Simulated assay, not measured.
Amino acid sequence: MREPAFGQLNCSIAQSLAMLGDAWALLILRDVLRGVRTFEGFQRSLGIARNTLTDRLRHLVEEGMLTQNDVGKRGTRFEYVPTQKTREFQVPLMAIMQWGDRWVVGRGNEPVVAVDRDSGAAIAPLVVRTTSGRAVTADGLMYKPGRGATALTRDYLTARNKKLARTSP
Score class of each variant (00 low, 15 high):
F6G: 13
T76R: 02
T67D: 11
G146W: 00
D22Q: 02
D31G: 13
R102W: 15
G47F: 10
R147Y: 06
I96K: 01
S168V: 00
L26P: 00
L152W: 02
A95I: 11
A18H: 08
A151L: 14
V128P: 04
M97W: 10
E62W: 04
P92L: 08
G100N: 09
Q84S: 14
L152G: 13
V61I: 06
L20C: 02
M97A: 09
A95M: 13
G140I: 12
D116P: 00
D101M: 07
P92A: 06
V105S: 11
I96F: 03
A138T: 05
D101I: 05
R129P: 07
V115H: 09
N10H: 03
G72V: 12
K144Q: 15
I28Q: 01
T153H: 10
A151C: 01
L29G: 10
L53R: 01
M142A: 14
R160I: 00
E79H: 08
R117C: 04
R37Y: 01
D101E: 02
S45Y: 05
G64F: 04
R2Y: 05
M94N: 03
M1E: 14
A114E: 12
T158E: 00
L46Y: 05
V91Q: 06
G120T: 06
L60W: 04
L57S: 12
R87D: 07
V115W: 13
F6K: 07
V32K: 14
D22V: 05
G41V: 13
R134C: 05
L57C: 14
A135N: 06
A25Y: 00
F78S: 15
L46H: 11
Q8W: 01
S132L: 13
P111L: 04
A14S: 11
A5F: 07
L53S: 14
E62K: 08
A149S: 08
V112A: 13
A95C: 14
A95K: 06
V128W: 11
K162M: 07
P125T: 05
T86G: 06
T153I: 07
